[in-house]
């Protein structure tokens, strides 16, 4: 893991009561997404997360279906990012690794770093690169981790390899809730979203937010993986 210094980023979507820039405390983030091999190690130590054992409550049928069996990868490459993992499984892995999933704010903050700057969102070339990576056709074989250039923080493959779970992926989906900002969920979708959005240039971020908004926690998809993060002790 590498240290990401604290800072702020311009949130793409926000409730009326939220500031336009969200602050992120310094934290640690994994350089690469979790791989098939790493996830296999976890599954071997935690039998309840084997494909044949997992509760339907925690993972849909697609869970790890690209592996040859409960305990063998088969054609799945050990260094490919693990996919077909539910959010519950990703949470369990992170806990096992004495870590956690990054929050949406942390993930987006890191995703905004170009190779030379902590905030590449004003760099048209960077944004164009992110968009083309995000829109890359999903049909081909999944790439391996570790092959892309690192960003400003030393973190790789934030764009283009896999979608990634975040700890609070569903927190923007507030419906029937207690404090009357139910306009929030409407903002996650195309037409209405434009009104509440603060940044029109980062189209890839729109895609990510709408993708997250469509997920449920037991879903497992062939292009959806995760990476882990860790909090730093508060400065004394």
């Amino acid at each position: 893991m590498v240290k990401v210094e604290g800072g702020t980023y311009g949130a793409l979507y926000r409730a009326p009561d939220e500031p336009s820039r969200i602050s992120v405390d310094a934290f640690l983030m994994a350089v690469d997404p979790v791989t098939n091999q790493q996830f296999l190690d976890f599954v071997m130590e935690n039998p309840k997360w084997r494909r044949s054992n997992v509760s339907p409550l925690f993972a849909s049928e697609a869970y790890l279906h690209h592996w040859a069996s409960d305990s063998t990868l088969g054609v799945a490459h050990p260094e490919q990012p693990v996919t077909n993992v539910s959010w519950f499984a990703a949470q369990a892995y992170a806990r096992w690794a004495d870590a956690r999933l990054p929050t949406v704010a942390e993930w987006e903050y890191v995703a905004g770093a170009s190779s030379t700057s902590a905030d590449g969102r004003s760099d048209p070339e960077f944004l164009a690169g992110v968009l083309s990576a995000t829109n890359a056709p999903g049909g081909g074989p999944l790439g391996l981790t570790g092959n892309s250039p690192a960003n400003y923080w030393g973190i790789r493959d934030m764009h283009g390899l896999v979608w990634e779970w975040t700890s609070d992926f569903n927190s923007a989906l507030v419906t029937g809730e207690s404090r009357g900002d139910s306009g929030l969920d409407r903002k996650l979708f195309c037409g209405a979203g434009v009104i509440g959005a603060s940044d029109f240039t980062d189209y890839a971020a729109f895609l990510r937010f709408s993708y997250r908004g469509g997920l449920s926690a037991s879903y497992a998809g062939s292009r959806l993986g995760f990476r882990i993060a860790r909090s730093l002790p508060p400065p004394s």
Binding site: A15, D17, P19, D168, A172, E177, L184
Partner: peptide
């Protein structure tokens, strides 16, 4: 249950 912390 959906929830979200607000700045206040």
């Amino acid at each position: 249950v959906s929830y979200r912390r607000t700045p206040d």
